[in-house]
Nucleic acid binder design. Structure first.
Lengths: 277, 277
DNA sequence: GTTGACTTTATAGCAGCTGCAAGGTCTATG
DNA sequence: CATAGACCTTGCAGCTGCTATAAAGTCAAC
């Protein structure tokens, strides 16, 4: 009495007939009976318990092969090991997803910023809140080189990020620092690259805080105009009677959507913190 | 000057040569040059920017095909849509993983419980803290039927769980309730199945709280001994002069590791809440 | 006896790679 | 100049956990 055909068993347990056949072939679970004449698979409803276990083990990230080994020769210690391994893995995945979640927010904000950004060459005064940067010193003055070398240095930044277990995703918001004293003397010398990161996600000893301030900013759509525009920025600050209060930043805005398949699409916001006095 | 071979490009960007060749074939990114004679791929380091974008898009869950479309004909609005879609997806995944994380903890506890559990037939008094159960009324008195029907009802519970968007993973901790008044009259009539769930993860209106209490418990290794053991439990309570203060529960412990490939491996803890007086 | 729902096996495909084989090429050293 | 060893090319097979399809056989109901 009461055997279930493959279709009934599948429906009852919410999986496909194909999966049941696959599990049979892989030795996870075979029907208790086979039709003598027709070769049909007939399952006992109690085998649902095995399907539950299979499902559970799958959710633990075990492969079908591993599962079949466990079903054949169950080892509770092994299961416990898998559970603990999986627990750590899940913790890691949660952390990653939280990173990613934040990075996506950041990109959306960045796109909005890009959309509303003034055209190339515009100078504006903006208040920018407190930020946190992840900084590396690459030991090479990139102003002496061109785009190629800059790309090479970006790779270094990228490697450094991943060495510190930070998600690559922050990488879309990179930039460079020019120290206040160098800028004052029009000396384009800098070896420092950064990405902006989140204070709440990245440990404090890896990051450098940038205080909130009013910034005099100029928007720029090419890597090659940077020096010229920076000069304009300084002149404008002087004209307006602002005092420069910190380091100059060259921030790349919305790197991602600016796709140019031969080179990095650039939209930069060059900025210097200023006070009025 | 300075073209990169496929190996250099791969190393620089932390992916395999095979992947670069795949991306070429799929039309995501082709080397700017090809060796005339030897057919070698030569990349421009600036193409790293494209690889960054590809990586970013991949992390957004886009397929290589979608990515190639976007690279060919970028649409910032589409990107934003993908970003928002991905954001929701990430939120869902985080929620799921938190569920899973908790369920794994629960299973590990369950295994530990199983390891230290007394042998079949032992009666002990245990304090059990507050619990939360997800309960369904299946409308059928399962004491009138055997294991087959019980399996069928478990499937119903399972469907109900997934209809309420709860993870199947809780399913490993199922059990049945017998109301106090029925037990008192030795009337084995119950239509209620449950799984234990977490208060913090499952909305309150889906769950029923079980207060903390001392429970007189008997451990049982077979479905078929339940009635007999429940009777023993009642007699023991009487002998010790305890008063039954609530519903009887039949809780299955560590369902998962008890693998018997023909039927559900059972280890039950039958329990009645009692007070002394 | 026919219809239509079911079953069987076998085979191919998916995505995003990895790995291998067979063959050609580059560069450095002897 | 020869040769070794690192590199490159294409093409094909394989991985996982399915899904989809085809061709053929079976069952239950009318």
């Amino acid at each position: 009495m009461g055997y279930l055909s493959i279709g009934e068993m599948a429906k009852l347990n919410g999986l496909s007939e194909q999966s049941l056949r696959l599990y049979d072939r892989m030795g996870l679970i075979s029907p208790t009976h086979r039709g003598e004449e027709n070769g049909y698979r007939y399952y006992d409803i109690r085998q649902s318990a095995v399907l539950d276990i299979i499902q559970y083990m799958k959710s633990l990230g075990m492969s079908l092969k591993e599962i079949s080994v466990q079903l054949r020769d169950p080892d509770i210690n092994y299961i416990e090991t898998v559970l603990r391994r999986r627990q750590e893995q899940v913790d890691g995945e949660i952390k990653n997803l939280k990173f990613q979640r934040r990075a996506i927010e950041r990109t959306i904000e960045s796109i909005e910023h890009y959309r509303t950004a003034p055209p190339d060459g515009t100078i504006v005064l903006e208040y920018i809140g407190r930020r946190q940067m992840y900084l590396i010193d690459c030991g090479i003055n990139f102003y002496d080189y061109d785009m190629d070398e800059y790309e090479r240095l970006l790779r270094e930044l990228k490697d450094s990020l991943s060495a510190d277990q930070l998600p690559q995703i922050y990488f879309c918001n990179a930039g460079t620092v020019l120290r206040q004293e160098n800028l004052a003397q029009r000396r384009f010398y800098s070896t420092e690259l950064f990405v902006f990161v989140d204070r709440e996600f990245v440990s404090a000893d890896l990051t450098t805080p940038i205080p909130a301030s009013n910034y005099l900013c100029i928007y720029c759509d090419s890597f090659y105009k940077e020096k010229e525009y920076a000069e304009r920025l300084l002149q404008e600050a002087e004209k307006r009677g602002y005092r420069v209060t910190g380091d100059y930043l060259c921030e790349s805005i919305s790197d991602i959507p600016m796709v140019d398949t031969t080179a990095r699409g650039m939209f930069l916001r060059l900025q210097i913190p200023v006070s009025f006095a």
